[in-house]
Computed example of a mutant assay.
Amino acid sequence: MPEGDTVFAAAARLRAALEGQRLVRTQFRVPSLATVDLSKRTVRSVRSVGKHLLIDVAGPDDDRPESGAVSIHSHLKMEGSWHVHPSGTRWRRPGFQARVVLRTATHEAVGFELGVLELTETPDGDLAYLGPDLLSDDWDPAEAVRRIESMPEESIGVALLDQRLIAGIGNVYRSELCFLRKVLPTRAVREVDIPSMVELSRRVLWANRLRSARTTTGHTAPNARLWVYGRRGRLCRRCGSPIERGQLGSIGEDRVIYFCPGCQT
């Protein structure tokens, strides 16, 4: 499931192939952008902001790169992914799933089934509502703590998923983080040690930011990577209680949550 670490890794791959390179061909396969052509423009930077990915492209005039500069903003949602490969290489996913193709002289980047794909001239302003980015170089733990603690009656499971409070956590990590801190996701924020939760969140996502296989247990075998997520009915790795699954969140949101009724209180 794409979360902050997945997007960070995707940005790193795209950055290595695109940053500083001139685009020789672009194709947007969504109706709202079907006529857009960014060829002959230079990719200035690629960056992740929480679960969002930005590809910053210079304007059409090399002497005035700021004039007409735009950012390609994408969000993977549940099914999206970015693939990078040498130009001419066969795609690893079906062509009908492609939403955008960016080609340089040597490489091609393809965004498949992106949940959000748009162009913006004000990317930082558009994402200013987000809380501190767990994987940012200027990570601000104090601000993350302040934002979460400003909602004392909210459940910690809902607060961790609120990108306005802290950016980068999704369903997998919120289940795992609550288990690691030994608290039920339904516990109120005021009853949780928020500084410790925030510190652990940064540490766990940072450790996984470039891993091919996400792990919270320290083990990388497919059946040993996670403590509780996706393990309903299986025995807790610590106390032996059957892992349970529930729903937590607002209607229309991703609400699934996993927990151990023995270890978490």
Rank of each mutant, 00 (worst) to 15 (best):
S32Y: 00
P31D: 14
R13M: 10
R13K: 13
V24Y: 08
V7N: 03
D37R: 12
R29A: 08
R22N: 10
L33R: 06
D37S: 11
P31S: 13
S32P: 05
E19P: 08
L14C: 14
F8I: 00
Q27E: 15
G4I: 01
R13W: 07
R15S: 15
A9H: 13
V30K: 10
T6L: 04
A10F: 06
L33K: 08
T42D: 02
A34C: 07
F28W: 06
Q21K: 14
A9T: 05
L18R: 02
D5L: 05
A9D: 07
D5T: 10
L14Q: 05
F28D: 01
Q21E: 15
A16I: 00
T42M: 12
Q27P: 00
F28H: 03
L38G: 02
T26L: 07
A9P: 01
A34F: 07
E19V: 13
R41L: 08
A12I: 04
L23S: 06
T26D: 05
G20H: 10
R25I: 00
A16E: 14
V24Q: 10
D37E: 12
G4N: 06
R22I: 09
G4H: 05
L38T: 05
L18D: 01
L14M: 15
A34P: 03
L33T: 08
L14H: 01
F8R: 07
L23Y: 06
V36P: 00
F28L: 01
A9Q: 09
A12M: 09
T26H: 04
A11F: 03
Q27T: 09
L38D: 01
V36H: 07
V43W: 04
T35V: 09
G20Y: 09
A11R: 00
D5N: 13
T6E: 01
L18P: 02
K40C: 11
E19N: 06
G4T: 06
K40F: 06
L38K: 03
V43H: 03
Q21N: 06
F28E: 01
K40L: 12
F8V: 00
S39E: 11
R41S: 04
D37K: 11
V7G: 01
G4S: 07
V7T: 09
T6Q: 04
T6V: 08
V24L: 13
A12T: 11
L14D: 01
A10I: 04
Q21F: 05
T42G: 00
R25T: 07
L33G: 09
G4Y: 03
L14G: 13
V30L: 10
E19A: 15
V7Q: 02
V30W: 11
L18W: 02
A12Q: 14
Q21T: 07
V7I: 15
A34L: 07
R15A: 15
P31H: 09
V24I: 15
L23T: 05
L14S: 06
A9K: 14
A12W: 05
L33Q: 08
